[in-house]
Design a protein around this nucleic acid. Structure first.
Lengths: 302, 302
DNA sequence: GACGTACATGAATAGACCTCATGATAAACG
DNA sequence: CGTTTATCATGAGGTCTATTCATGTACGTC
């Protein structure tokens, strides 16, 4: 039995128009065409869908069943088509975000909250970029935006700069390093370094400091959540290097000390990677604007 | 934008099979055909539904939306087609009943209750045949069965005999007619006759007794519910003629007397009218069987 | 009973959809 | 890194289905 949407539209039209001839006008076809179509449909169904004893022909019991299906299905189709019109008009879309930088949750949540209000139709989602490579996922359209501090954009991808930040050293005030004004690579030799559980080439403390200086910390342990890292640091189980914006609450806490990396200050830039064809979309532009301005407010508040 | 079910099936198949070529096999068509179809669909949608950068091609964001629609709509279609298979196999159907005879509720409800258990898939409904002519409604397929005691089946309609019954006189025991052994037409001249609110040609007391004898009761008043008629009779506000099966409870009640019509006993036959093409259907046959056997049990219980 | 309206039917046609053959490009392999 | 294989795209041509046109038939109506 091969039912097609055309058939459902026909059933509905005949019911609404109250007759085959009138329905044909509504559907912009000849009465003959509809008659043939109904005949074919009834052959498919294996039974009469209409009662022809009375003259404006009416739905039979079986016909009413099909009408019920039509009235459930056709609005779904219409809704989908409306969604696609909105998609074409750029009023809606998808924004699935992958973050390679764990500390970014801190500013991403407030930003997304603001975005959600401005673009309620956009399908928003976040995926922590632990289990997969984020940039290929961008190309496969598994995600639409990647928060990253990589430097070399692959073809088809643009790196939109968001803001600059300082990778900042944090330790317990009981740690001997609290006595220093700034921290260098050598200072890590005797320390337990606490990081997110990702590869070293995605951790600022390695890419910017330890790896160039060929220094290995005494030990390294990992924690997924920023709050857990800070807790471990607070109880002097290790030290960490985190972006400055997460230091906001810690700075006013006597248990912690924060120090710049040195002697020259280390500055990194945060990027939002998108596909080139998405970069121009209005909602994407709005998100990038928010992601540029909001995090710096957090940094200032620190 | 002309979406068809074929397109939704394609979207789903490509997703499930993980690629266009494999999907083509599942759908029993060539890879080329599917490629053309997808191209056409994307033209209709006005955007790319698939990402072709990676080789087994994958759904894009827009494609995922269409997939969602497909996964909601296609099961509905499958369910409908399954319903039609059941309809063809006679396992399901519709049984909308019109009753011209009000007292028939008494035995119809128990019968329908039994039927509902045996044929849970059948769409059962009752419509009191007050506002419309029941037999034309049968022809128009507004209803599928009419409980009636008419005699002349119109073309295309069969009258299936159910059972015989005696129109029986009932009055208050305080009524003078309680002294008689049987009741004749003349006895109504001084009585208020209580009937259902339908035309006289559908009331046994008129068609069988009063109209042939050209007798008019002193007055006539109506009530919709059998219980109300009996209540009025009980308080000696009038007399009534009702089928014997509704006398069940009244017979053992000292407030009432029931008497046969006379002098010759009046016998009427109850019919279930159906369309000829329905008469052979298994569920219809089962209903008729129930409607033949169950009411007589009620009569015996009286 | 004649007329108008509503649906059915048959033949012809236009157009959509499919297949075949082949080209292009990305993944896999040695 | 080149070769092979798998996957998808494209163009031309054939087929088949849906539609139209012209006409027939039956019901409802006056």
């Amino acid at each position: 039995m091969y039912v097609e949407l055309r058939h459902l539209r026909t059933i509905r039209a005949i019911q609404q128009a109250g007759g085959l001839a009138r329905a044909a006008e509504v559907l912009n076809m000849t009465q003959s065409a509809l008659s043939h179509q109904v005949k074919g449909l009834e052959e498919q169904a294996g039974m009469e869908l209409f009662v022809r004893r009375s003259k404006p022909m009416r739905l039979s019991a079986a016909g009413h069943r099909m009408l019920r299906a039509a009235e459930r299905i056709l609005p779904e189709i219409d809704a989908m088509e409306e969604e696609f019109r909105a998609l074409r008009a750029g009023r809606t879309g998808r924004l699935h975000i992958a973050i390679e930088c764990h500390a970014c949750f801190d500013w991403l949540f407030p930003v997304l909250e603001m975005f959600r209000h401005a673009w309620p139709e956009i399908d928003v989602d976040i995926r922590a970029g632990l289990a997969f490579e984020a940039l290929p996922a961008l190309n496969r359209e598994d995600v639409d935006l990647v928060i990253s501090s990589d430097r070399e954009p692959p073809p088809g991808i643009v790196f939109n700069p968001l803001f600059d930040y300082h990778p900042t050293f944090v330790a317990s005030s009981a740690n001997p390093l609290a006595a220093k004004d700034f921290i260098t690579a050598d200072d890590f030799r005797d320390q337990v370094l606490i990081t997110y559980p990702v590869s070293r080439d995605k951790l600022d403390v390695f890419t910017e400091i330890l790896t160039p200086a060929k220094v290995e910390p005494r030990a390294q342990r990992t924690a997924e959540l920023t709050a857990v890292i800070l807790m471990l640091v607070g109880s002097n189980r290790g030290v960490a290097v985190l972006p400055d914006w997460v230091m906001r609450e810690v700075k006013s806490n006597a248990d912690y000390v924060t120090r710049p990396m040195g002697p020259a200050p280390v500055l990194k830039r945060m990027y939002a990677a998108t596909r080139v064809e998405d970069a121009g979309k209005p909602y994407m532009a709005h998100f990038l604007r928010l992601a540029r301005s909001e995090p710096v407010k957090l940094q200032r508040g620190a």
